[in-house]
Amino acid sequence: MHIPDGYLGPATCIVMYAIMVPIWWLAAKTAREKLGDRSVPVLAMLTAISFLVMMFNWPVPNGTTAHMVGGTLIAIVLGPWAAVIGITIALVIQAFFFGDGGIIALGANSFNMAFVLSFVGYYVYKGVFKTIKSRKPSAETFAAGIGAYAGINVAALAAAVEFGIQPYISQGYCPYGLDTAIPAMAFAHLIVAGPVAAAVTGLVVGYMRKNRPDLLNLEKLTLSEG
């Protein structure tokens, strides 16, 4: 899901950066207020985990590959604003040092994977967890899995739309329109990256609920109520 440079036209890249600037600012502001001393090393570890899980590419039956991101996991443990920070840092490192995802496209990639994925993942998880009422670790596993699945798929859809609108607005950039981009991105993430993200996120969060529930009670960097 790392959009390289040269696929998105200048208009899209500028708009995506313009959207991300206030999001990054809000994330930093929330972190300054709510990220406690105990949470900082946890965010460092979760960011490293995200970097690692993104290196596990999984084969997609149509011959391509896909991977999970880890934003929902960070969001569940420390809140979606913390996930914005952690995933953005991972994306910056990937773009500058490993040539994965473009630098001009960093705004778009951050919007998809750091912002959309984390917020959708977190609030779907919250919604499912509230709905099922059970407080067993298995309920937590289920809710976290659904959240991670939803998060990565909505993020993939956002990326597909950014790719797919290029033929209509910026000639010479991504050659495929929405009719090709959306099914391709949806396929890879609905049947491969989504289930991987759901399983990993669900198992880790369920394990934490069972063995270290205190780690799920660190202050969360959320919109307001928590």
Binding site: A31, T47, I89
Partner: peptide, 13 residues
């Protein structure tokens, strides 16, 4: 990459 992730998070905070 993972070491840099840790250093960046700790450094920024």
């Amino acid at each position: 990459g993972m070491s840099m992730s840790v250093i960046f998070v700790l450094g920024i905070s």
